[in-house]
Simulated scan of single mutants.
Amino acid sequence: MRMRPTLSWTPAEDLPPGTTDLEPVAEALGAGGVLVLSGAGISTESGIPDYRGEGGSLSRHTPMTYQEFTAEGRARRRYWARSHLGWRTFGRARPNAGHRAVAAFERHGLLAGVITQNVDRLHQAAGTGNVVELHGSLDRVVCLSCRTLSPRRELARRLEEANPGFAPVAAGINPDGDADLTDEQVGDFRVLPCTACGGVLKPDVVFFGEAVPPRRVAQCRDLVREADSLLVLGSSLTVMSGLRFVRQAALAGKPVLIINQGPTRGDRHARTRVELSLGAALTALAQRLGVPVEGRAVGTAGD
């Protein structure tokens, strides 16, 4: 009987520390067939904060859960007021050197695809084409009743008209585009229904407590199966939605390489973890491989 492969367990204290040696990553990229799994850390240089990094927003902010959003009208008012304000900043974010390097690797045929845990569309704005948005995108809105999708910019325009003069000063912006506002600042912010059926509108993103659509997970698993190696960029891999693909690659004997500032939950499965800022590391990799990186982005996150 054939034994099913298992993952070895290494105690956290026995894991090697991060390195600054990019050679293993350069070798994998040079061979091609690399699947990128990106997290919030790749967007911090674009001004979008991380959840769990140094000074991460989870230390001061509790994200809205799906259960709370769907159960309480007051919670939806609070969410949409904060998200509407945050969108003004979030939608103006520009791709950084890390996003542009990933796009350059794709143009030169080195990538098997990109799975991103981010909802900011900065990979696409930099020019990357084959991107699976694991957690959805803030630039789309979905009706929970009729499932109609619509552009976020259309809802933003409607909310501006319905809430003239709404311009409180936020204490900060979070990775999900949610601004930090007090209940007093939210006030009687007016929430708008779906124009098609009058149902409840929600950003087309996976909230905390909500499952990633099974078809999307299957698409990502197919990408892992077809790839030669997996490169994690800027993710602590704390949640299973991303970690499962690291485990899948490791079980299949495929090299897992990580570039992240700080330990990750996937370190025990990785051949190396490079402890460098992503913009500098990916730019250096592009130079080492002779891959020119375009300096101008295709658009902004809100395009």
Results as ranks from 00 to 15, higher is better:
residue 38 S to M: 07
residue 284 A to I: 00
residue 296 R to G: 10
residue 97 A to Q: 11
residue 113 G to Y: 02
residue 51 Y to C: 05
residue 90 F to M: 04
residue 296 R to D: 13
residue 250 A to N: 07
residue 88 R to I: 05
residue 130 N to P: 09
residue 111 L to F: 08
residue 139 D to C: 15
residue 43 S to F: 08
residue 45 E to T: 11
residue 91 G to D: 00
residue 14 D to F: 13
residue 208 F to D: 00
residue 285 L to H: 10
residue 221 R to G: 02
residue 116 T to M: 03
residue 97 A to E: 12
residue 86 G to D: 02
residue 175 P to C: 02
residue 137 S to F: 01
residue 196 A to R: 14
residue 63 P to S: 06
residue 67 Q to D: 15
residue 125 A to D: 04
residue 67 Q to M: 09
residue 218 A to I: 00
residue 130 N to K: 13
residue 206 V to E: 00
residue 261 Q to V: 14
residue 75 A to G: 03
residue 57 S to E: 11
residue 19 T to E: 11
residue 143 C to I: 06
residue 279 G to S: 13
residue 254 K to Q: 10
residue 60 R to N: 07
residue 109 G to P: 09
residue 240 M to N: 15
residue 100 R to M: 13
residue 87 W to M: 03
residue 197 C to N: 03
residue 131 V to D: 01
residue 248 Q to C: 01
residue 101 A to L: 04
residue 54 E to P: 14
residue 200 V to F: 01
residue 192 L to V: 13
residue 62 T to C: 06
residue 162 A to Y: 03
residue 170 A to L: 02
residue 83 S to R: 14
residue 186 V to W: 05
residue 236 S to Q: 05
residue 59 S to L: 14
residue 148 T to Q: 12
residue 175 P to L: 00
residue 76 R to G: 02
residue 69 F to H: 04
residue 136 G to K: 01
residue 178 D to F: 05
residue 137 S to I: 03
residue 43 S to W: 08
residue 35 L to A: 07
residue 242 G to W: 04
residue 298 V to I: 13
residue 44 T to S: 14
